[in-house]
Design a protein around this nucleic acid. Structure first.
Ligand SMILES: [Zn+2]
Ligand SMILES: [Zn+2]
Ligand SMILES: [Zn+2]
Ligand SMILES: [Zn+2]
Lengths: 279, 279
DNA sequence: GGAGGTCATTGTGACCGGT
DNA sequence: ACCGGTCACAATGACCTCC
């Protein structure tokens, strides 16, 4: 699927413990869990920026970032993760990033005496709002739901997604075939949107003027390093994601992080996903 | 349909190899059957209680429970089973459960001399007695059936089921539509009865005084050629069956059974069903 | 030798194609 | 709808490369 590791930015080997990660971070997280020796404290006030070069420098910050991107070993489960689970994780992450963007914008506007911030109701976080529309993965079983308003933001389907596209409702039970197909396509769309947002999307979602570099959504990095161990088995999925219009070339070091993310590192994701659920 | 896996208690994905099971237990059973490497022995004297959390811990006990609930790969075939076949399997299982209930009740009465609380349905396991009462489907041909007396015990149709409700005979060919509808309703009733038995049901079903065995399912069945009186009732039953709120999601952990099940686990179901039969 | 990373193997389970 | 197969993922361990 050619994703990038959400922890260090390296090409991801797969979806491990709740997030796309590389082999190293997967192994690190797996080992850290049952490690008798607790991770030593950070020597930099827990503000280390993790990338592929320095990821081994500070285990505390690396592990913290693992939790931050949603990794969880609570009741880790055998077998493949369902696509809905991945979609949920990706949308949740996407939402957090948008939330962060909005916050930074508001911060800017406030300091620079601009127009008052618009209240974006659609940017609410999954967990902060106990909206019944959004169900946590713990609650729903195999065929359940994702909020529609979130789905509409997927660039692949610019506002065209009919409500029936999404799982929730009772629709699924009626025509499982269509639902299965849409689920795959939908997941591909989400993945692609995270890798290379379309220009319009960037304009609308990240109205520039952010002081420091970063567009949080843009995880672009197009290495496509074809590993020998992962041959082109993913024929089915590649068809959709093939024409990815490569994003800006991320320069190896310009990891997506900035000070803003550093601040986020202090608050861990409140509700790590329970990987035992089918979803 | 909102059934639960008869092996581990997870929500079932469908009717696989003769029992309602989840995707995992289905796959496990399919793999275990033709596995050259025999399953390693249980480290707990074969007394493990299988539930969704620990089902991967002991393969021996998981496989044993698969057989216990009636799974069989002998001649499993493609294509969907008819509802009559499912009904047969469910009734057979139900019968075994009743038998187990009766046995335990008698046991209790003998020991404690007072009315025992009726054990929750999922606590009594099938199989205690290798009852010849249950005839294997291998014995009959494509058009087997269910004995009327059994059908009458379905709580949904408290003794109201006319003999004509049941399938046999050649009548079905004449008006498949009505038959299919009734069959479906009947199946729903059976399923619901397994999920939440009504108190009356237990009372009415228990009167049997036979010490161990009870009414065998007469698969030789013949006929009951007259039918057609049932439709009015099926209307009523659908309304009831459809509004099954399935609220009984409470189980979760209640699935783990008491030590009674542990003892029962040592005995396997004697006659696995032949899934090749058309029924 | 320990820590981090890669790779192979086994078991599992969600998804899919065929029937 | 079910069966069988595919394949993504967890767990484990061997092996390698640095220090
Ligand atoms: Zn990584
Ligand atoms: Zn640090
Ligand atoms: Zn199961
Ligand atoms: Zn065991």
């Amino acid at each position: 699927m050619n994703q990038t590791c959400k922890v260090c930015g390296e090409p991801a080997a797969g979806f491990h413990f709740g997030a796309f990660t590389c082999e190293g971070c997967k192994s690190f997280f797996g080992r850290s869990y049952n490690s008798t020796t607790s991770v030593s404290d950070c020597k930099n006030n827990g503000e280390c920026v993790i990338n592929k070069k320095n990821r081994t420098a500070c285990k505390a910050c690396r592990l913290r970032k693992c939790y931050l991107v949603g990794m969880s070993k609570s009741g880790s489960r055998y077998g493949r993760r369902s696509n809905w689970f991945k979609i949920h994780c990706l949308l949740q992450e996407q939402q957090q990033q948008q939330q962060a963007t909005i916050n930074s914008m508001q911060q800017n506007m406030r300091t620079s005496q601009k127009t008052p911030p618009l209240p974006p109701q659609h940017l609410n976080d999954y967990k902060t709002t106990a909206s019944p529309a959004v169900s946590s993965p713990e609650s729903h079983n195999s065929d359940s739901s994702i909020e529609i308003s979130d789905a509409r933001r997927i660039p692949m389907f610019p506002g065209l997604i009919p409500p029936s596209f999404l799982p929730p409702a009772g629709l699924l039970n009626n025509n499982p075939g269509v639902e299965a197909f849409n689920k795959r396509v939908f997941l591909d769309a989400v993945l692609q949107s995270q890798r290379s947002p379309t220009p319009e999307e960037v304009v609308t979602r990240v109205p520039i003027n952010s002081p420091h570099q970063e567009s949080p959504i843009d995880l672009s990095m197009k290495t496509l390093s074809e590993r020998g161990s992962s041959p082109a088995q993913s024929d089915r999925s590649t068809s959709v994601a093939t024409e990815r219009g490569n994003g800006s070339e991320a320069d190896e070091e310009s990891d997506c992080d900035s000070e803003k993310e550093l601040k986020q590192l202090n608050m861990l994701r409140p509700t790590p996903l329970d990987l035992t659920t089918k979803v």
